[in-house]
Design a protein around this nucleic acid. Structure first.
Length: 298
DNA sequence: GGTAGACCTGGACGC
DNA sequence: GCGTCCAGGTCTACC
């Protein structure tokens, strides 16, 4: 079955895919040679499907190797639209970026959308697994989580979806710690899964909450394992750009950009993007850094 | 509100 | 091959 979804223009699937490292995390799989990716997802019916998403101007096509019910088609349409931010409008950002040489390519490259997973739960777990570890560690932890707890594609046990909150909630902390190798993050992931599975926490409601960003940030910070950096990262994924995800990479980039490589603190990073107001997170994300090239992933 | 120390893993390095 | 050191954010206890 094939679905066609339109995007707000400008749109470039390759730019979205390479907006950060998420494409390297299971159950995403990059497609060689073309602008597109594969993703394994479990639908609300429990059915596990593999989707292939390809550029089809002015949007994408979604190929699913199976017949879908109208409900399932609608669910996939909604999920892919969310994952790629198809309805996001960055015209205000582009107007501002035009006057900044370090962001002058933003509109041309259609930068602004940041690749998301199908659910905010999945993105929150992945964000927790980016903290206090090397990127290779994040890739390994997510891969282990999917391989050990994710439901498999029918007839292909090697391909698995990200586990649902309920599936993860049944795990025990020791297994997550010692076999999934999440280390001290195990209780954080388990508690999050249990809260979402029990209905105490409705993460996907965060997508549409009409509350000020600082208030939303407070709610994210109340999740164990989510600190300043993780909350700001999740806010960016939620389309809120008024906080900067300040991590060690940010210190390095900003230090070399404006401070001659000298050690700096959070205030220096924030000062560098203060003028960007509600767009500072995005300006930081797509800034054309002098040191070490851009932040995109190939 | 700010700070120090613990948490855990894997990669780099020296022997 | 083994041991040690270090990088990477967040939490908790303490001041």
């Amino acid at each position: 079955m094939n679905l066609v979804l339109e995007a707000q223009t400008p749109f470039n699937l390759r730019t979205v895919i390479h907006s950060h490292g998420w494409i390297q995390l299971a159950p995403f799989d990059n497609l060689d040679g073309v602008a597109g990716f594969q993703y394994i997802d479990q639908l609300h019916t429990g059915r596990v499907i593999e989707m292939k998403v390809l550029e089809k101007s002015p949007g994408v096509s979604v190929e699913v190797g199976a017949q879908l019910s109208p409900d399932e088609s609608e669910e996939i349409t909604d999920k892919v639209a969310w994952m790629l931010g198809l309805d996001q409008d960055f015209s205000t950002f582009y107007a501002l970026a035009q006057g900044e040489p370090k962001l002058a390519q933003a509109a041309t490259k259609a930068q602004g959308r940041i690749l998301r997973s199908a659910t905010l739960f999945e993105d929150t777990v992945k964000t927790i697994l980016t903290t206090n570890t090397a990127w290779s560690g994040t890739i390994r932890m997510v891969q282990n989580l999917v391989a050990q707890f994710g439901p498999s594609l029918p007839g292909n046990p090697g391909k698995r979806a990200f586990p649902t909150p309920a599936q993860l909630a049944e795990a025990d902390e020791e297994t997550l710690r010692n076999q999934t190798r999440l280390g001290y993050r195990s209780p954080y992931v388990l508690e999050l899964a249990q809260k979402v599975a029990s209905g105490k926490l409705d993460m996907d409601a965060f997508k549409n909450l009409e509350i000020p960003t600082p208030e939303l940030r407070k709610q994210l910070l109340s999740i164990k394992g989510v600190g300043d950096y993780a909350a700001a990262n999740l806010l960016v994924l939620l389309g809120r750009f008024d906080f900067i995800p300040v991590d060690s990479w940010a210190f390095k980039m900003v230090s070399h950009e404006w401070y001659g490589g000298e050690p700096i603190g959070r205030s220096e990073v924030e000062a560098g993007f203060e003028d960007w107001g509600d767009w500072k997170g995005l300006a930081f994300w797509f800034w054309d850094w002098s040191y070490g090239g851009d932040s995109s992933v190939d």
